[in-house]
């Protein structure tokens, strides 16, 4: 039963990821990525990471993807303004690079398949619960956790500078 759920979720994730690359319209790619995120949330639940699975749906699928959708709608790109893919040489290079990467990482993963840890330890019921992660965040990982707030502050300031409309005309472009 576990294996069936795993293969369904993994298959959906990989198929949606392929669809993300193949789609020519950005809006379809965004929706494919949402499907990938939900399938990954199922895998997280199987790995008894409930808190991360919920965060995945709320933050990733709920917040970040809505941001992507808003930008896609805001830009309102004309259909077939340009072809979706780059030059054929670069395209075949990309597929080759990705294929080699997949094979390489899979070969590394085979080392874990043969090791004695293939079964995994038995975890207690509270593994991955909100309480446990929260205690870790505020005790062992307090400094990185506080630093994330500074990162978010910098991101907010940067976005405000980048995306606000300036009133003065932009400098001439033929300044090379």
């Amino acid at each position: 039963m576990d294996l069936v759920v795993f293969w369904i979720a993994a298959g959906v994730a990989v198929a949606a990821a392929v669809n993300l690359i193949l789609q020519t319209k950005p809006i379809n790619s965004v929706l494919s990525l949402v499907v990938v995120l939900f399938a990954l949330a199922v895998l997280y639940l199987q790995l008894s990471a409930e808190f991360v699975a919920v965060l995945q749906i709320i933050i990733y699928a709920g917040a970040i993807m809505v941001l992507f959708l808003f930008v896609v709608m805001l830009l309102n790109l004309k259909k077939d303004e340009f072809s979706a893919y780059r030059k054929p040489l670069l395209r075949s290079f990309g597929v080759l690079l990705g294929g080699i990467l997949i094979i390489e990482i899979s070969l590394i993963c085979r080392a874990f398949a043969t090791s004695d840890a293939a079964e995994g330890p038995v975890v207690v019921g509270e593994f991955g619960s909100v309480g446990q992660i929260g205690r870790l965040l505020f005790e062992d990982y307090l400094l990185p956790f506080e630093l994330t707030s500074i990162l978010l502050l910098i991101a907010v300031a940067g976005v405000l500078i980048l995306a606000t409309k300036r009133t003065e005309p932009p400098p001439p472009e033929e300044h090379s």
């Binding site: 690359i21 950005p26 790619s29 965004v30 979706a84 893919y85 780059r86 395209r91 290079f93 990309g94």
Partner: peptide
């Protein structure tokens, strides 16, 4: 590598 659209 292969897509031309910045959002993709």
């Amino acid at each position: 590598v292969i897509s031309r659209n910045l959002i993709t």
